[in-house]
Design a protein around this nucleic acid. Structure first.
Length: 483
DNA sequence: CCCCCCCC
């Protein structure tokens, strides 16, 4: 990259006859202007020396150029409108702004400058993800996609239906993490991934957040964007890593010998508070009507109502309740999975106490099994009222609880749900965070059939044209096209 | 933004 072309710095307002070779380093979702109905989309171009400039598309040019200026690809640009950025609209890239329109000449160059692209990201190590749990901090990740779960439909608390789909990413240390894709990312990225999973795709995502759902997972936001590439071509380091470790990765993919963010693996990594002031006193949340919030509580849990059901039959795809018998395959009305399997899931209703008060709280799944020191299947088969001999009903020592408070639509009170239980000794013993136990999770990978035949990358109206286009199928880049 | 309880 380089030589006979100009660099970004060589081009000022009024400069004529220039051509700059750039990589599309960032591509943001189209947005609506604050004080007018104008739609705009910002891109960041980077030249061979790493200088950047903000480029903007307006109105119809956004859709017209959506397949021309692809993230990570290299282009020769000339005749863009170059002007000083209005201070009010100035993006971080610099003083100069290029406006891309029909008169701008854009020529694709087949060059792999993905390392330039990579250099614009600041990736969060999987190990550091727990630090950002439920914080809404914007993170970027890079990893290889080794699994994709079936799509599922969820019902939000407000009665809206959303589609989500979970991916499993592995990093170069073979740590894995779940990435939950929401809504349009299911239609676009996930569909592409399902069709290309055998290629060992590398995923680069930005504007993601870390949540405590499913122990710990990454989740998309409205303005998340992804760059997905096959066969390790993207990053030099991943290329050698992928080839050196292809057997291990193949094994992880086919045998599912990996473990995503289970508490045993996380307990030493979670940002569990150590200072007393970082724990919430129960008296401060009793009867509190807040929007959803998360708390750390240090105290004890105990079962006050012995006569309760310590499990429920659940959908193995979405954890929602099921009316089927254990092991039966059925269509789940919640996630719309046609071949869901009914499996037991532990739950326990208990009381959390600290020196200042008590709240009632529910634990489901992992934290329930941890507290009861049992598992869902045993709990399901238990016929007698439980005794301290058959399960743990109270704690001897203080343990640490990560609690989610959910305001109910009609009730004045919060419901509390225990997401993690951490024994303080696990934190003290963080040094011996040896290998996590290997666990067999679920069935072998199922490759989902695409629901439509049409290309991922073009709207229906583009189909006639798309056959003419040389579409690089090894790479996709999608930003949300609407909203 | 998604797992139990379900008040109707």
């Amino acid at each position: 990259m380089g030589d006979k072309f100009q660099l970004i710095h060589d081009v000022s307002p009024g400069t004529t006859g220039w051509t700059v070779k750039v990589v599309v380093a960032e591509k943001f979702s189209p947005r609506i202007a604050q004080r007018s109905p104008t739609k705009y989309q910002n891109l960041t171009f980077m030249d061979s020396e790493g200088s950047t400039v903000q480029a903007t598309l307006y109105g119809q040019n956004i859709t017209a150029f959506q397949d021309e200026l692809l993230l990570g690809k290299t282009y020769l640009i000339s005749n863009a409108l170059v002007k000083e950025t209005n201070a009010e609209y100035k993006a971080k890239s610099g003083e100069i702004q290029w406006t891309i329109s029909g008169r701008t000449r854009i020529r694709r160059v087949e060059e792999n400058n993905s390392n330039l692209l990579i250099s614009t990201y600041s990736f969060t190590d999987f190990e550091d993800l727990p630090k950002y749990m439920d914080s809404n901090v914007d993170i970027s990740v890079i990893g290889m996609i080794i699994d994709i779960k079936p799509r599922r439909i969820i019902q939000t608390r407000f009665g809206k239906e959303c589609q989500v789909q979970d991916l499993v990413l592995v990093n170069k240390r073979f740590d894995t993490v779940l990435l939950t894709m929401w809504e349009t990312f299911v239609d676009n990225e996930c569909k592409y991934i399902c069709q290309n999973l055998r290629k060992k795709l590398i995923l680069i995502g930005k504007h993601l957040k870390v949540t405590s759902f499913n122990s710990l997972s990454i989740s998309t936001k409205a303005d998340s964007s992804f760059f997905i590439d096959g066969e390790f071509e993207l990053v030099e380091e991943f290329k050698s890593w992928g080839h050196t470790n292809s057997e291990i990765i193949d094994n992880m993919i086919s045998e599912k010998h990996y473990l995503t963010s289970t508490p045993s693996k996380l307990s030493s990594k979670l940002s569990v508070p150590t200072a007393e002031k970082d724990f919430t006193e129960i008296k401060n949340i009793q009867g509190l009507k807040t929007v959803k919030q998360f708390f750390w509580i240090k105290g004890k849990a105990s079962v006050k109502v012995l006569n309760q059901t310590y499990w429920y039959m659940s959908c193995n795809n979405c954890n929602k309740i099921s009316s089927e018998n254990y092991g039966d395959i059925y269509p789940c009305v919640f996630c719309k999975c046609t071949d869901a399997k009914a499996i037991p899931r532990a739950k326990v209703y208990m009381q959390l106490t600290d020196p200042t008060g008590f709240i009632n709280a529910t634990a489901i799944g992992n934290p329930a099994e941890y507290f009861l020191q049992s598992n869902a299947e045993i709990l399901m088969n238990q016929t007698l009222i439980p005794t301290a001999a058959s399960m743990r009903l109270s704690m001897d020592e203080d343990e640490i609880f990560y609690v989610k408070a959910i305001t109910q639509e009609l009730s004045p009170d919060c419901k509390f749900e225990i997401l993690f239980i951490v024994n303080p000794s696990q934190i003290a013993g963080a040094k011996n965070k040896g290998k996590a136990p290997v666990e067999h999770i679920g069935e072998p990978i199922k490759f989902l059939e695409p629901t439509t035949k049409r290309s991922l990358f073009h709207s229906d109206t583009d189909d006639a044209q798309s056959s003419k286009k040389k579409c690089d199928k090894s790479t996709i880049e999608i930003t949300k096209k609407n909203q």
